[in-house]
Amino acid sequence: MNRQVVVGVDGSPSSLVAAEHAARAALLRSRPLLLVHGYLHPLGYGVPSNPYDLGVPAPTEEARKMLERTAADLAGRFPGLAVEARQIAGGPGATMVEESRRADLVVVGSRGLGGFTGLLLGSVGAQVAAHAHCPVLVVRPQGQPIGVDGAPVLVGVDGSESSQLAVGYGAVEATLRDVPLVLAHVGPAGAERPVPDELEEVHAAEYAETVRLLADASTVVRTEHPDLVVREHPVRAASPAQGLIEASGAASLLVVGTRGRAGFAGLLLGSVSQAAIHHAHCPVLVAHPVS
């Protein structure tokens, strides 16, 4: 199967920024790009108002023209990119999740039409980021840079299975972009200040664990990607989320797992991943396994 890079497009500035990210990602991967417009609003917009009319509404001419314009613009700006556009009768979030079953990567913008302006990531993006069947790239709002040329790919490391998957994706992304890979482990803040004697051993053990986790992850990456520049970066912060968000200011991409050691087994996205996709200073790749 020639898996595509899939991006949801609704004509909003946010979705057009996401489409540009998706075009770049598709070229890097030598994959075709699929522009998807799910035209049934999840709250009922587009559903027949007559309860006796059970047919599904036809795709709109306005949306068709919007998709054609977007596809033509991307094909012109990115020579060699194969672009397909498709309208699908379904809610945008559910449509993207379903398309992710056949995708190499799904790209979502920070917000689409309909607002949710109090959130950096709207309800559709959050649904896709949590439930997709492949990696999800969450891009920043319009006006923020697509990425700093030469800036490294940053991955959070905590030794969990989800983190190991994120490290693998991060190494691939860094290789594709020809930039260094930075492996970061966040330890508790305040360890650098004088502490009572009884806490010194605790801090020493925490630091030794940080060194071990980063060394183990680096060894795996260097074995699989011997030409990749890999850096180990211990971080001190009040929380793992805060540490990664602060460090993301110097990165071109932040890669996070779906859940870390903290558990939250009832959630598809852990607290660190949730915080990262809402507040990171660069695009965020959520490392779902391809199913």
Rank of each mutant, 00 (worst) to 15 (best):
H21D: 04
A22P: 03
A22G: 07
L27T: 13
S30A: 12
L33I: 04
H41M: 07
Y45E: 14
S49Y: 05
S49L: 14
P51N: 10
P51R: 08
T60Y: 11
E68T: 15
E68N: 11
R77A: 14
A82T: 12
P92R: 00
P92D: 01
M96P: 00
M96C: 05
S100R: 01
R101V: 03
R101A: 12
L113S: 08
A132Q: 01
P135D: 02
V139C: 08
V139H: 05
Q142C: 06
Q142V: 14
G143R: 03
V148T: 15
G150M: 08
G150L: 10
P152V: 00
P152I: 01
L154K: 10
V155N: 01
D158R: 00
G168V: 03
G168C: 02
Y169K: 03
T175V: 04
T175N: 12
T175P: 05
V179N: 09
L181V: 12
V186N: 00
G187W: 07
A189S: 14
R193P: 01
P194T: 14
P196A: 15
E198S: 15
E198A: 15
E198C: 13
L199S: 10
A205I: 08
A205W: 07
E206K: 13
Y207V: 14
V211C: 13
R212N: 04
A217K: 00
T219W: 08
T223A: 15
E224D: 15
E224R: 11
D227Y: 12
L228P: 07
E232C: 13
P234H: 09
R236V: 02
I245L: 09
A247N: 07
A251E: 09
A251S: 09
A251H: 08
G263D: 08
L269G: 00
L269Y: 06
H278G: 10
H279A: 11
V290S: 10
S291G: 15
